[in-house]
Design a protein around this nucleic acid. Structure first.
Length: 647
DNA sequence: GTTTCGGTTCTTTTT
DNA sequence: GAACCGAAAC
């Protein structure tokens, strides 16, 4: 059995947590205290103790986190931990539902609707019900409402009452849209992201017979980022772990930043009450940041109510004071950041050691322009998920059509690419084909051709051949090849005519083709693809991403990561904290935690940008006060920089 | 009746 | 960008 040298590599607190005996365990791990390390060692420790990896379940926030942890654990124990189940809640629910969804009345090959699909369905429902007026909420608003209800295990109606209490919106109509949406999903044999979680839990609640084997199987259940679980995830975990009760959760209530999507940090606060016999470990020794940075983080978070009291202690020594830079406006901020980056580069800093973080994607707009102008290379974790980019969805819809004759959304999307075919025509074609399309049947292909508008036929012929090839040449084992041919025959030309930046989009598709090689066949590719985030896709498919580039990212997406230098944009009232969040219950506390997350990403240097004015769309200007999170700091904790960029 | 095109408006955070 | 709206073009 491999020997793990814990004394050498872990501090006393970490070691105690890693070696904790059976039973429930709560690890409160503040930022930068080696949380991942502890979890990795725990997994390695279990395996080294002889636990079969197949009997361990590891739930993480991203797939990337799961993969990294497994890779590191594998290095430690020098053996395969491959049989271990690791991934996001959505992935695990999907994995289990693929086997048992029929128990809930679904087909086992149900489709997964991504956000874009869901939006389309809601928009159609609104249109069909004739509610498309000025005073009806947008699909996004409706969806976020439905989603919050799902994730808090609650009903849509009372939530809608509350949300629209002060508006003209008739809640009865909202409920009609909701009913229509639910019905459409049923008809399409599809689940949206929330359905995966909700049905994952429903399956276990309603079918103890199906739950029991999983309870028996998973001797150990480990949950990362537990502060960001919502009620249904917590209940799901409790159910899975109920048999052996070896449930180990790791988290930091200070870093709970997903309240708006139903996460409930009381899950972590109440853990000791739900599991009175839980062993609790606190990790407070921070290895990441210099003391000056932690002082700011500690000061900022200290005022938040309801939390496990803890203070970060710096292990590293050195003196820095974070910088607050006063700037004129967004453009001044952009120029300041560009010059700061140049200064850092001259000092020999690698640009991949620098990150620019912000509250919302649009905060970085001017900066992106400036950096492009100055030819400073950067990577951005974009707001749009890789697999929801229009061109990526276009080409995957061909694969979906080839795999599933009943995939209406894919059919209509693909047909819509043909000239002269729009929403109405594609709907009519689908009905005319009888609600299914067998791509492999030459007969069906010819039938469809006959019904197409003349303008679309030539292009259809190019695409139709691919369905034949799919069968004849066994392309189901090579979805990448199918996509490649589709691009060569048809999509390249289409992209050229449709998109200004067609070359970048074709590069994305090339990356997608690379990505397919990770999967054995078209079906497994599809069943995973909808759940992958842009972070996952980027890491796997776009290897050039990390080179010597500055990273631009939202704070949410920066969670768990670290850089030598961190620059925070728009640290002003209204932007950060975001005005809209302050209106929510617990809004300020969550914004504060977000600020804490931003600050604790930095190892050596931390900059806050405070522009004085914000230019509004209508040409007006708005004066900005520095963020309350800065104003509250004792002024000895930071250094104000008055720059040539105004302010 | 549909599709396409051009202009306008808005942008919190994500699986 | 991309969603939405209105108007022109097919």
């Amino acid at each position: 059995m491999p020997h793990l040298d814990l004394e050498q590599t872990l501090n006393a607190g970490q070691r105690a947590a890693v070696e904790a005996g059976d039973g429930p365990v709560l690890i409160i791990a503040a930022a930068g205290t080696g949380k991942t390390r502890t979890l990795v060692y725990r997994v390695a420790h279990l395996v080294a103790r002889g636990i079969n990896p197949e009997r361990i379940l590891l739930l993480t926030f991203t797939n990337k986190a799961a993969r990294e942890m497994l890779a590191r654990a594998e290095q430690l124990v020098g053996s395969m931990v491959g049989g271990l189940w690791g991934g996001t809640f959505h992935h695990m629910a999907n994995r289990i539902l693929r086997r048992h969804a029929d128990a809930l009345g679904y087909r086992l090959d149900y489709a997964i609707l991504d956000e874009d699909d869901a939006r389309t369905l809601v928009r159609q429902a609104v249109a069909r019900l004739g509610l498309r007026g000025r005073h009806f909420p947008k699909p996004d608003v409706l969806l976020s409402l439905f989603s919050l209800a799902a994730n808090t295990d609650g009903l849509v109606e009372p939530l809608a009452q509350e949300r629209f209490a002060e508006s003209e919106v008739p809640v009865a109509d909202v409920m009609r849209v909701y009913a229509a949406y639910v019905e459409r999903k049923r008809a399409l044999h599809a689940m949206d992201f929330d359905d995966l979680l909700v049905n994952g839990l429903r399956l276990f609640r309603e079918r103890p017979d199906l739950l029991a084997p999983y309870q028996e199987r998973f001797l150990h259940v480990l949950v990362d980022e537990y502060q960001d679980t919502n009620g249904i995830q917590a209940e799901w975990v409790d159910l899975v772990a109920a048999r052996h009760r070896n449930l180990l959760v790791v988290g930091d209530d200070f870093q709970s930043i997903y309240g708006w999507r139903g996460a409930n940090f009381r899950n972590i606060l109440d853990f000791p009450r739900r599991y009175p016999d839980a062993q609790v470990f606190k990790l407070e020794a921070n290895y990441r940041s210099l003391p000056g940075i932690l002082d700011v983080a500690n000061a900022c978070i200290a005022g938040n109510p309801e939390q496990f009291q803890k203070t970060l202690h710096a292990i590293r020594a050195g003196s820095v004071r974070p910088v607050v830079a006063r700037l004129s406006d967004g453009d001044g901020q952009a120029r300041y950041v560009a010059s700061l980056l140049a200064r850092l580069a001259r000092r020999g800093m690698r640009m991949s050691d620098v990150a620019v973080l912000y509250r919302a994607h649009f905060h970085a707009l001017e900066l992106q322009l400036e950096m492009s102008r100055m030819r400073v290379p950067y990577v951005i974790t974009s707001g749009v998920r890789f697999f929801e980019l229009a061109h990526i969805k276009d080409v995957t819809s061909l694969v979906r059509m080839a795999v599933s004759p009943t995939d209406e959304l894919a059919f209509r999307r693909l047909l819509g690419l043909l000239p002269g075919v729009g929403e109405k025509t594609s709907a009519r074609l689908w009905d005319a084909m009888g609600g299914h399309f067998e791509g492999r049947s030459a007969d069906a292909r010819a039938q469809l051709r006959a019904r197409l508008p003349t303008a679309a036929r030539a292009d259809w012929d190019l695409v139709a051949e691919l369905f034949a090839a799919y069968v004849d040449e066994h392309l189901e084992e090579d979805p990448g090849e199918l996509i490649y041919r589709f691009v060569e025959r048809f999509y390249r030309e289409y992209a050229l005519e449709t998109f200004e930046n067609h070359d970048r989009r074709l590069e994305d598709i090339a990356a997608l083709i690379d990505f397919t090689t990770r999967f054995e066949n078209a079906e497994s590719f599809l069943s995973e693809v909808a759940l992958l985030t842009n972070l996952d896709a980027e890491a796997d498919a776009l290897p050039q991403a990390d080179a010597a580039r500055v990273r631009l990212s939202t704070i949410h997406q920066a969670k768990g990561l670290e850089w030598k230098t961190v620059i925070v944009l728009w640290a002003v009232e209204g932007m950060f904290p975001a005005a809209r969040s302050l209106a929510e219950e617990d809004g300020e506390a969550e914004e504060r935690r977000l600020f804490y997350v931003a600050a604790t990403r930095a190892q050596d240097e931390l900059y806050f940008c405070v522009p004085e004015i914000r230019r509004m769309r209508d040409g007006g200007i708005m004066y900005c006060e520095p963020s309350r999170f800065i104003r509250e700091l004792p002024s000895t904790l930071y250094r104000t920089e008055h720059t040539s960029y105004g302010g």
